[in-house]
Design a protein around this nucleic acid. Structure first.
Lengths: 117, 117
DNA sequence: CCGCGCCGTTCACGGGTTGTTCACGACGGC
DNA sequence: GCCGTCGTGAACAACCCGTGAACGGCGCGG
């Protein structure tokens, strides 16, 4: 019941590195190798914008080639799985021209700042 | 030896180490030596993903050689026996590229109005 | 000694998943 | 409006896994 140092948390998302297991709201969510590594890279930098180049380096162990859309495709896959496991919450946010940012937030904010960047 | 409780439980699966006995939903299920050791290894780590290498080390007392499918074959045998003893429940889950995870969960029957052709 | 049945290992054939790429449309900035 | 960026479904090959079956070893009873 230990596993505190090798466990990353962010809201209801928990990643146990020792088990390669991803828990969302307490339930195990099956991830492929790429999905797992990309999610790990995003959560490890939660709250900050991470460029595609860096995400690719972290999850693919290679440098992103021009025109490669792999990161976009896998961000989409992660969004689908996370949304399915915990509807009504947005985890991965797009920052146009910069990259992606992981942060557990309600998917619909009311009268709040839409000018964030 | 092990002075702790020699009985492991997980849902409706009970393993009595002192007797080498496996009970599923109260009924005794006959297991071979390999099946018993593999099941024990899985239940001892229930809820976590266990790699084939680790399972092989625990149940075979040797290191898994490349291309060896023994773990897969015995996971299949366990699934058959567990499913036979308690239909409609999934115990051993496959994590593609990672390994197997033991957890008593209802087998997927949440989809409706889509089949029938 | 001989046949029989159980067990463990290995092989082989699909079938299911994954990872990559393409294509097209929606979106955002200028 | 124009163009680059992003979302998303689909096609494809490569790979991983499920599964039945063949093979040999071992123990047992006749």
């Amino acid at each position: 019941m230990e596993a505190a140092s090798d466990t990353m948390r962010s809201g209801d998302v928990e990643i146990r590195a020792s088990d390669g297991l991803v828990l969302v709201a307490g339930k195990a969510v099956a991830m492929s190798v790429r999905e797992y590594r990309l999610l790990t890279a995003l959560v490890a930098r939660q709250g900050r914008i991470v460029s595609r180049e860096e995400l690719y380096r972290l999850a693919w162990d290679a440098s992103l080639r021009r025109g490669d859309r792999s990161v976009d495709v896998y961000v989409h896959k992660l969004r689908v799985k996370l949304e399915e496991a915990l509807p009504g919450r947005a985890f991965i946010h797009t920052h146009f021209g910069f990259g992606y940012r992981f942060a557990p937030e309600p998917s619909r904010a009311f009268h709040n700042s839409e000018t964030d960047r």
